[in-house]
Amino acid sequence: MRVDILIVSVLFLQSVTSQAQADDWSGVSVGAFTGIGLSQNSVRSATFNESTFGAAQSISDDDTEWSGGFTISAGWQIQNAVIGIGVDLDPFGATQQMDCRLIWADGFNSNVLVTDVGNGKCSRDVSWSVSIVGKLGWLASESTLLYGLGGWTTSRITQNYEWPSSLDPTSATLNGATVGGGVEHRLTQNWHVSVEFRATMFEERGVKGISKELDAPQISVVGGDVETVRLGVSYLVPWR
């Protein structure tokens, strides 16, 4: 009789332990993501010599850009709360078209001064981005997590001026705070999917260069904000 009771107790504890492991969100996750973003670019650039002046300034537009990459994170469940930290890498980059206000003036040292002002096209190439974010979530159910996030993003960008002027491309590494939130759903014990919104507020950074066309100084200020909706899939490896 005691043996039977012992066997039943062991089986019951094993069942409870297995269920606890299946319900536990603690572990290391690796995954991938894709998303679409709306960038509010900020760029001002100017170059000049004794006879010529050229400048450009960004104009707000609604052009979007696709992004994607990989993520690795670690999480810990404390009752119904889940805390975590993760690193995201976008090695592919993206190109976004944008409108610019263009100014061109020629003939400072002559009696004939030609000035042209109009709207033109510029573009911004993002070579790569890296984010480090912390997450704090609450389990709405055993399989659904609601969370907020905050952290830091670094991106390498090149600003291009697509018009026949004296402005050369400008490159800079921008840093900015990232905030957002999302929903993560567990399909199986290990496979998870998520939908989240992120907003990154990049700093404005001044870049000094030389215009090859004019052989004159070029001064640029680049920055802007990015709002992104992302879809992700990940595989969770439990701590235990």
Rank of each mutant, 00 (worst) to 15 (best):
L102E: 05
W163C: 00
S60G: 15
G120L: 08
T153P: 00
G35L: 06
G148N: 09
W138G: 12
D61N: 14
V195P: 05
V226A: 09
V28N: 00
P169K: 05
T173K: 13
A140V: 15
D125C: 03
G35E: 05
V195I: 12
Q40W: 10
R230A: 04
D225I: 13
L89P: 01
T144N: 10
G84P: 01
A74E: 03
F108K: 12
S131T: 11
D90W: 03
V237N: 02
A46V: 09
L146V: 10
G69K: 06
N111V: 14
V43L: 08
G69F: 02
N175R: 13
I36W: 06
V183D: 07
D168W: 03
V229L: 15
W76G: 01
S131I: 00
I59N: 12
N119V: 11
S155R: 04
S73G: 11
L113D: 12
D24F: 03
A20N: 13
L174H: 08
D24R: 01
N80I: 11
R124L: 06
T115I: 13
S234C: 05
N119M: 09
S29P: 01
V87Q: 05
A74Y: 04
V207W: 00
W163D: 03
D62E: 14
T178H: 10
V229D: 05
Q218M: 14
A172K: 02
V43T: 07
S165G: 14
L149P: 01
G150Y: 06
S127W: 09
R101E: 04
G206P: 09
H185R: 01
E196N: 11
S29R: 03
N111A: 15
G232M: 04
R240M: 06
S220Y: 10
K212W: 13
M98T: 03
N111L: 14
I219M: 13
A74F: 09
F12G: 04
G75D: 06
N119Y: 15
T115V: 15
G31R: 02
D62L: 09
V82F: 06
G180C: 09
V30Q: 10
I5S: 04
V207N: 04
G151N: 01
L174S: 05
E184A: 02
G37H: 12
G93E: 06
S51I: 13
R124A: 01
P169L: 04
I210N: 08
S127N: 10
D23P: 04
I219N: 07
G68C: 14
F53S: 00
R186L: 03
V10P: 02
S127G: 05
I157G: 00
R44C: 10
R44L: 08
G232D: 04
E184N: 05
P91D: 08
L145D: 00
L136K: 12
V3F: 11
M98L: 14
N111Q: 13
A20G: 08
I85V: 15
I132P: 03
A81D: 06
G68I: 10
G68P: 09
D168V: 07
G134V: 12
W152T: 06
G206F: 09
L167P: 01
S15W: 09
S60K: 12
V195F: 11
R44N: 15
W66R: 11
A172Y: 07
E196C: 07
L11H: 15
E227A: 11
L187Y: 10
F53M: 04
V193C: 00
T115F: 10
